Simulated scan of single mutants.
Amino acid sequence: MTRHGHLPGRAGRNTALMEALADLPPMVVADLFGMGAKTAERWAAFAGGAWAAT
């Protein structure tokens, strides 16, 4: 946290990414976050969500 109580940019993005992967398939998250499909699949596996197996 910064001294003003806000999350730094990267931490906020990563938190949002993990939350999105809990509810959405990696291909949708890849489109939303502007990342490659393989990167989204790796994040899904890291997040351990139900989508990691699909």
Rank of each mutant, 00 (worst) to 15 (best):
G36M: 05
H4M: 14
A37I: 13
R3E: 11
G49K: 06
T54S: 11
D31T: 13
G36I: 00
R3N: 10
P26F: 00
H4C: 15
G48E: 04
A22Y: 02
A30L: 01
A52S: 10
G5S: 13
G12P: 02
T15C: 03
D31Q: 15
G12K: 06
W43T: 02
G48Y: 01
H6F: 10
L24V: 13
L17K: 07
V29A: 08
T15L: 09
L24M: 15
D23C: 13
F33H: 01
V28D: 11
K38R: 12
R10W: 03
R13N: 08
A22F: 00
A16Q: 08
R3L: 12
H6L: 13
A45P: 01
P26T: 01
T39A: 11
G49Y: 03
P8T: 11
M18Q: 10
G9P: 04
V29F: 00
M18F: 02
E41Y: 10
L24H: 12
R3T: 14
A44T: 00
G12W: 01
A30S: 08
L24R: 12
A11W: 02
E19V: 03
T2M: 05
E19T: 09
V29E: 03
M27G: 10
G34V: 01
T2A: 09
T54Q: 07
V28A: 06
W43I: 00
F46L: 10
P8Y: 08
A47Q: 04
L7K: 04
F33L: 02
L21Q: 08
R3G: 10
K38Y: 11
G36P: 02
D23L: 11
T2D: 11
M18K: 08
W43A: 14
G5F: 15
R13V: 07
L32P: 04
F33K: 00
T15Q: 09
A50G: 09
P25A: 12
R42L: 08
M27K: 12
V29L: 03
A16S: 09
V29T: 02
R13C: 08
G34P: 03
W51Q: 08
P25E: 11
M1S: 10
V28I: 03
A20Q: 03
W51Y: 08
P25F: 00
P25V: 01
D31R: 14
E41F: 07
L17A: 09
A20N: 05
W43D: 04
G48D: 08
N14Y: 09
